[in-house]
């Protein structure tokens, strides 16, 4: 922990603090600024070996599952293949999001399991600020890792699919970010992972225990598409529209947009609403509860 420079700077600026009731005179007290909170959170995540491994895991799992899905799909000649190649190439996001969820959950649950959260909240009593700092750092990390994962997946699809019958001559142009729908799917998938991270962070802040938090998050993500399979078409559409995963992944669609239960950006909006609600609930509980 880089607490030393914080203490030095604290002693340099000894402005009287409104919150120093009960503290003996001479003890320098001030709240860490948001910038310092960000720095602290960045140091905490950066120095954990698990963070790097999990980010690598996000990339590896996403690319491997995407490439496997592309490799498993063939379009024999003479058969019409109703396949959205962009969506197919991004199948790995459905698995990679689980690793993103672990990363986000550990960012806060790890502190609860080691007791670090007390130090964190002592240094930064503005608890919403702590959550905001964690969310910001996570967003940056997942943006970076997600971009690599999505780029790798699309590259794998671009290399594999033409050899499996999905050739430009048959109406499947090479996947290219220069095309609007593909770019939307790619950028949207990265944003999807970011929103999953924020949803997970908020949930973990509310639940605290890492195992339980992961269970709640994966349940929230995976249950909607499963239950949607057994209900009638009316409910099927509704479940697809409100499920964080089913709605959020609408952003990956590049064909047949009219028949989608929810349009791409609206779907991502649904997921954003889930993430905002989770962060709000997590932030409130973090404020109201004892650490």
């Amino acid at each position: 922990m880089s607490q030393a420079p914080l203490a030095e700077r604290a002693s340099a600026r000894e402005a009287p603090h409104p919150e120093r009731r009960g503290l003996p005179a001479g003890v320098p007290v001030r709240w860490a600024s948001l910038r310092e909170a960000l720095h602290a959170e960045w140091t905490k995540l950066r120095t954990l070996s698990s963070t790097g491994w999990l980010l690598l895991g996000v990339i590896a799992v996403t690319v491997v599952v995407s490439a496997s899905a592309a490799a498993a799909t063939r379009c024999p000649s003479g058969v019409a293949c109703p396949v959205d190649t962009t969506k197919l190439s991004l199948t790995g996001i459905e698995a990679g999001q689980a690793v993103v969820a672990i990363l986000a959950v550990l960012a806060i649950s790890g502190e609860y399991s080691t007791g670090m959260i007390r130090t964190t909240l002592t240094a930064m009593p503005r608890r919403a600020g702590v959550l905001a700092a964690k969310a910001t750092i996570l967003t940056g990390l997942v943006l970076a890792g997600g971009t690599v994962a999505v780029a790798g997946s699309l590259l794998a699809g671009r290399l594999i699919l033409p050899g499996h019958g999905f050739t430009p001559a048959r109406g499947f142009p090479l996947l290219s970010l220069a095309e609007g729908p593909v770019l939307r799917a790619a950028a949207g998938s990265v944003l999807y992972l970011v929103l999953i991270a924020l949803l997970s962070l908020g949930t973990a802040a509310a639940v605290r225990d890492s195992g339980t938090a992961i269970g709640v998050i994966l349940g929230l993500l995976y249950l909607f598409p499963i239950v949607a399979q057994v209900v009638n078409p009316h409910w099927y559409r509704h479940l697809q529209q409100i499920g964080p995963m089913t709605a959020g992944l609408a952003i990956q669609a590049t064909t047949g947009l009219r028949s989608l239960p929810v349009s791409p950006w609206a779907g991502l909006g649904v997921l954003a609403a889930w993430a905002a609600a989770a962060l709000l609930a997590g932030g409130l509980l973090l404020r109201l509860r004892d650490a």
Binding site: A69, A72, T73, R74, V83, D84, K87, L88, T91, E94, A95, A98, V99, A101, I102, V105, L106, S109, D209, S210, G211, A213, I214, G215, L218, Y222, P225, I226, A228, Q229
Partner: peptide, 29 residues
């Protein structure tokens, strides 16, 4: 570690079902 173990087991049991039943994978896969 609970987080990793819970994730691996849930993903291993539930995700293949979702991919197999409710995705765009070909029937063979």
């Amino acid at each position: 570690r609970s987080a990793a173990a819970v994730t691996i087991v849930i993903v291993a049991i539930v995700l293949p079902y979702i991919l197999g039943v409710a995705s765009i994978l070909p029937v063979g896969a």
